[in-house]
């Protein structure tokens, strides 16, 4: 078997990035799916895009600009939704449009710098540096640690914010922290994974996991596993067929979802037996 895939440093980094990014994206994907806010991926990547352009305009590292914008946006989403009595998804839409506006503004002001910012939006797992790996590892560790430590508070808040509040959990704070953690994860994974890839890597593994279980704990585990598998299988296919890795990872994660949906036990209908009909009649 051809094992040359492991001999290149960039592939080793990509495989590590797939592991770490797959775990973080898989876990925050569970929040995103259960809170019905898939748009957060797109909104955050555009916040990063606008932030990177601002960084270029002001002459500092676009990555720092992107991080500031992403974090600021994720801090604002929750309170904006509450203050305006909107759903978080609508609040995200408002932020998304603002970010898009800012991005266009900078594109107009500073010509010929578009590609640097666009790189961030598209990203590439194959250019992941050692420094990126360290950042990805920190975020993956944080995400896993927070979910383990605050499992019950998060579970209650995802179940129903008012119920969580009523039993004495500071659910509003928990919710804002969940959104902030999601934003922070996206910010850090964006550089190595890319804005478009991140959307599918958050959504598909969690949506696939949701097809297969009624347990939240198992959903976290399955989703993280699917996230990592999508990255790894996508990378292998891309390496041996010599096609773009972003595309293969996105398509793999979609296939994982489709397979999960097909084999979902949730879709099976219980058999209507003669005895059950008799029972109902009595």
């Amino acid at each position: 078997m051809d094992l040359s895939i492991f001999s290149y440093l960039f592939m080793q980094n990509a495989i590590l990035a797939g592991l770490l990014g797959g775990i973080s994206c898989g876990i925050i994907g569970v929040f995103v799916v259960l809170m019905h806010m898939p748009f957060i991926g797109v909104a955050m990547s555009h916040a990063a895009f606008a932030g990177a352009l601002m960084g270029l305009w002001l002459g500092f590292d676009p990555v720092i600009g992107a991080s500031i914008f992403c974090l600021a946006a994720s801090v604002v989403v929750g309170p904006l939704a509450d203050r305006g009595q909107l759903s978080p998804e609508t609040s995200l839409g408002v932020i998304f449009s603002l970010m898009l506006g800012i991005a266009f503004l900078f594109i107009g002001i500073i010509p010929n710098t578009r590609s640097a910012a666009l790189d961030l939006l598209w990203g590439s797992i194959l250019t992941t540096s050692g420094e990126d790996i360290v950042l990805l590892a920190i975020v993956a560790f944080l995400v896993v640690a927070i979910v383990l430590l605050f499992e019950k508070e998060i579970r209650a808040t995802l179940f129903n914010r008012n119920v969580a509040l009523a039993v004495g959990i500071p659910a509003t704070l928990v919710l804002y922290c969940i959104i902030l953690l999601t934003g922070a994860t996206i910010t850090v994974t964006l550089r190595s994974i890319g804005g478009l890839l991140i959307f599918s890597l958050i959504l598909n593994p969690a949506a696939a996991a949701y097809q297969l279980t009624y347990s939240l704990k198992r959903m976290y585990l399955l989703s993280a596993t699917f996230g990592v598998l999508s990255c790894w299988i996508g990378l292998i296919i891309s390496y041996y067929l010599n096609i773009p890795s972003g595309a293969t990872i996105v398509i793999t994660s979609s296939l994982v979802f489709m397979l999960a949906a097909i084999f979902s036990p949730k879709r099976k209908t219980p058999e209507l037996t003669q005895s059950s009909i008799q029972e109902a009649k009595q």
């Binding site: 969580a164 039993v167 009624y214």
Partner: peptide, 16 residues
């Protein structure tokens, strides 16, 4: 929401 009846009842004790 992927949560069982027993787990929902347990939420009542989370605050305590």
């Amino acid at each position: 929401m992927p949560i069982s009846v027993r787990e929902v009842v347990m939420i009542g004790r989370y605050g305590l």
